[in-house]
Amino acid sequence: MIETIRAAFVIARRDFTAIIFSKSFFFFLLGPLFPLGIGVAAGGLGSQVSQDIDNPVVGVSLSAAEAEKLTTARVRLSQSLGSQSMPNLIILKDFSGEETDIISKLDSEKSLTAILSGTLSSPVLTGSERDVKRWRGKIALLAETALSQPATVDVQTNFVKQTQSSSKRIQLLTAQAGQAILILLTMILAGMVLSNLVEEKTNKIIEILAAAIPMDAIFLGKLFAMLGMALVGITVWSTMGFSMAYLIGGNWSALPSPAVGWPLFCLLMVVYFSMAYLLLGSLFLGIGAMATTVREVQTLSMPVTMGQLLVFFLAYSSITKLGEPLEWFAVLFPFSSPFAMIARAAQMDNVWQHGLALAWQGLFTLIIIRFSVMLFRRNVMKSGQAARRRSLFSRITGK
């Protein structure tokens, strides 16, 4: 085992040095400029998730008669302005409407965006500053319509620090961004493993290495060398991005905070990218072991690329479904697990689950690498039981 690790380190150092100090690496660093346009164009993919995230619900703490008038007014306005333009209303029964009870209700009910209290002629809207400012005008319009009078209704505001509903939306936005960054980086960088292996197969270099070093060490070394190259590229891109953001300026405190906190979330982003890269890279190594020409590589890698998109769609659609069967499947399926778990890191503050997920992903990576080595030996090195049977058959038949 120690000899395998030592040999893998030699291969990794060789490949890493050759890539980093090559002229093409500079142009590789310019690669993300081109997918940025694709990323912007793909923004519409999150429309359904955005509807699940931003589904505002306003609790109504008015008298029964005034609450009925308000709901009737909402129905009338929704028919003319559209239902999405108006907040959903929930009548809070057996509710005092006192300020302390309102704040307690907002903290305990994750579905509530704000609470409307007082009277229709003098309403009070309580919630986070963002939500109150967003819906204050619509609530005033609803009250004026309910009163059926031309007089303008002045909605009083009462800001609370942060409601459960606004906190949930912020964390979901962070989960969306984390998944999008992971899939973009993985798709850009993972293909390098495949092209590197096929190139060395074509030049017969891989066979020379296999004669001196165990194949497991060669595959591990190549995989981690490409991962190191990817991390160098990410470091350069991140430095450039943060430098530009710092020069432009902005309110950094306004960034939506994940449930585990920014330091741990950033660390998990790096770790889960590494696991997603190793999983996909090990799969590409298996494809490279089966392919003999560049055309075969393109043919075999296309289903994997399409499958990668399907895996991302699976993880992306499960963001708003924590604890449901679909989300659990995304967590347990190895190739979608890194994306699903980074979404959990944004929404759940328990850390132990990430250790289990990383162990599971690492185990599956080793299984794929082992299987890829077997394919390589059978298809390139012509070793193994199948090769021995062919050799025996040749000796018997004389062919």
Rank of each mutant, 00 (worst) to 15 (best):
E3Y: 15
I5D: 02
R13C: 03
D15C: 01
D15T: 05
F27W: 14
G39H: 11
G44W: 11
L45R: 15
G46Y: 12
D52I: 00
G59N: 05
L70P: 02
L70R: 04
T71G: 03
T72D: 08
T72F: 08
A73R: 02
S83I: 15
S85Y: 12
N88C: 08
K93I: 00
D94Y: 10
F95Q: 08
G97F: 15
E109S: 09
V124N: 05
R134Y: 11
G137P: 12
A146M: 06
A151D: 15
D154H: 07
Q156C: 00
T163C: 08
T163F: 04
Q164W: 01
T174H: 10
A175S: 12
G191F: 15
L197H: 12
I205M: 11
L220H: 10
F224K: 09
G228F: 02
G228L: 12
L231T: 03
S238M: 12
M240E: 05
M244C: 11
A259Q: 12
F265V: 03
L268F: 15
A276F: 06
F284K: 02
V294S: 12
L309N: 07
L314A: 04
Y316S: 01
Y316G: 00
S318H: 01
S318A: 08
P325M: 06
L326D: 01
L326Q: 05
V331H: 11
F339W: 00
R344S: 06
Q347S: 13
M348I: 15
M348Y: 15
W352M: 11
Q353E: 05
A359I: 13
F364A: 08
I367F: 15
I367A: 12
I369H: 05
I369S: 05
R378N: 10
K382C: 07
S394D: 04
